[in-house]
Design a protein around this nucleic acid. Structure first.
Lengths: 357, 357
DNA sequence: CATTAGCACTCAGGGGGTTCGAGTGCTAAG
DNA sequence: CTTAGCACTCGAACCCCCTGAGTGCTAATG
């Protein structure tokens, strides 16, 4: 049941028009297109056929046609034409791409905001660990009477820290000792390698700091097991800019009650196939609340066994081509930035200037 | 131009009823109240007077009255009765109050979500530094070829870290040296004390790690100067649950385009007076987009020179009493939790259990 | 045989008119 | 000072009709 070239052309035209107008598309509108060589009657026939195949839908008898989810899927997989970012678009994207934060988590949050702003839709950013993490360095510092800060560096240049409060006071020397023991026996050990046995051994060699060991270990294991960092979801309100949600605020609310950060972090698991760009169209989504909602997401490499994901949430009627182009641009540049520097590229020369006088 | 007792009673009744119904309140509805001893005609007269004074408003001639912003302000300042949380409410608040994160920032983010969820309104949480911060400890660790992680512990048990990438490779020994120098000369020095002179001195003693100094210093200064941490604003969509925004999604959108995280972080500055609880009612807000929006915020002590703020954003017609009660409950308990532990209280006994076996 | 012009039919959306009733302000009586 | 009574106002809801975009079918056309 292959589509003819003409049917493809018509389907593509319908998606393109509908995406920009958000109104059902009639046969006349299509016939009026410059490179359409057929009368509205012919197109009506073809539209009938496409409807039969389940690629189009009719809101009601006397309205035009709207792409069905299956129609969108076919469009995305076969018909979509690459959207070329205009010079102006590229420029404003470039301008926005200035991340000024230091902390990794904050950077991801900024990335999310950026994507949302540039696409004018809700967006998210998250980091995922590809391979199992290992600890790289432990550091224990006395922060006050009875409180200690544990700083844990993981592979992938991730740093975690935790404030530990204990009713008993620990000696500086004991802390030093424990730090040394931890660094000697736990670095480069994957989570599976941390056995009760090993734990006991550490406890024994920890001397006066032994009460700390279980707390430290719990935290370490938690960090090692953590598959992905926080999901930074922002710009939810922008969904209201879309006509389909303008007068159905409750629907928008529902969407984000369902599609919370936890759900987003699990999205990669439910995806049909694998690849750098992924589309989740309407009912392909798990929850029924999202049946009119689509998600476009894109991965990029952060280096050091970490992977970033950025994504956009929008109505099923969404300019997939344009969004994909923008996401692609972000992904490419973010990947480069992260690998190069972890933050804004303040060149060495510039930085040195601060020193001189 | 003082209000009579009766007028106060009527004003309070109007606010109370309007808050729960979101419909203009008529004289009959008030007269029907159990402890109202006057006929609707009398009440009509009083309502007329209150309208004249600018405490009430009339959407149109044949509708009931609605409190004006001035009316709300008077209600909040003088008329509002303490709302007692029901047993059930207390219980569900208690249940929610389990923070399970380790990192301070993530905790604040969770607090925001919590407040939003329990009030069913958009909410935010942020941490503010009361006094100037000083550095407590520096730590430099080699993370890979040409990349170094700087961990900076500040007063207030705040930990910041930054990944530094340099084209040149630094020796382990040089890092150790620089760490020692930094710890010796920069700890407990306030931001004002960090002069160019001091900087140069450090550079000189830093040996092979000298190129790192400006980067480290920039970061340190930035951290010291930072007045408040991130604002964690969440649950924006819940505003749509409010009748005044149900069919005016664009208004809701506007609200959060104006009231972004930056604006929120500046709110304390524009507040009329100081105190643990603060109300910002409608047009008292700076921006005209927020004229139908109010904010209730509350401070609590985190200890160590840090202060937390939680706040709720809602329509001007908002149950101030209830919101205040809930915020108060949160503030009290969060304050206690933070001061005790910085996280969930995993008792020492429990923790030790993990070790056995 | 594919294409197109023509036509009857459908139906959502918008405009205009009417009714309904909650709520008001005023007046006069208690 | 309070209250009962009354005329008046005006938004919300409803109904009805009309309009026009869009369809599916049929018959004519190249």
């Amino acid at each position: 049941m292959e589509l003819t070239a003409r049917q493809k052309q018509i389907l593509r035209a319908i998606v393109d028009i509908y995406v920009s107008t958000a109104e059902p598309v009639g046969s006349k509108a299509i016939a009026a297109l410059p490179d359409m060589r057929f009368s509205s009657a012919t197109i009506r026939n073809e539209m009938g056929a496409l409807t039969q195949m389940g690629l189009l839908e009719q809101p009601h008898t006397s309205a035009g046609r709207v792409p069905s989810p299956a129609g969108y899927r076919l469009y995305i997989d076969e018909l979509m034409q690459d959207y070329r970012l205009s010079l102006e678009e590229t420029r404003s994207l470039n301008q926005a791409l200035e991340l000024k934060s230091q902390e990794f988590d904050q950077m991801m949050s900024q990335v999310g905001k950026l994507v949302s702003k540039m696409t004018d839709l809700p967006a998210y950013a998250m980091a995922t660990r590809q391979s199992g993490a290992v600890a790289k360095h432990f550091e224990l510092v006395q922060a006050g009477p009875g409180s200690i800060i544990l700083v844990l560096m993981l592979s992938g240049e991730v740093v975690k820290n935790k404030l530990i409060k204990l009713p008993v006071r620990t000696q500086e020397a004991d802390l030093k000792l424990l730090g040394a023991v931890l660094n000697a026996s736990l670095t480069d050990v994957p989570a599976e390698g941390i056995t009760g046995e090993l734990l006991e051994k550490i406890s024994r060699s920890a001397g006066g700091a032994a009460p700390l060991v279980p707390l430290v270990m719990d935290f370490t294991l938690e960090c090692l097991r953590q598959q992905h960092g926080d999901v930074h979801l922002t710009g939810q309100m922008r969904l209201l800019g879309q006509p389909e949600y303008k007068d159905a605020a409750d629907k928008a609310q529902e969407v984000f009650e369902t599609l919370d950060e936890e759900m987003i972090s699990n999205l990669p698991a439910v995806l049909p196939k694998d690849g750098p760009v992924q589309f989740l169209v309407g009912p392909e989504n798990v929850a029924k609340e999202l049946k009119d909602t689509s998600v476009v997401m894109m991965r990029f490499d952060i280096g050091e066994g970490m992977q970033g994901t950025i994504g956009v949430v929008g109505p099923t009627r969404m300019d997939y081509a344009k969004i994909t182009a923008k996401l692609g641009y972000f992904a490419e540049n973010l990947g480069r930035m992260f690998q190069k520097n972890g933050s804004t590229p303040p060149t060495l020369a510039e930085a040195n200037d601060t020193t001189k006088e």
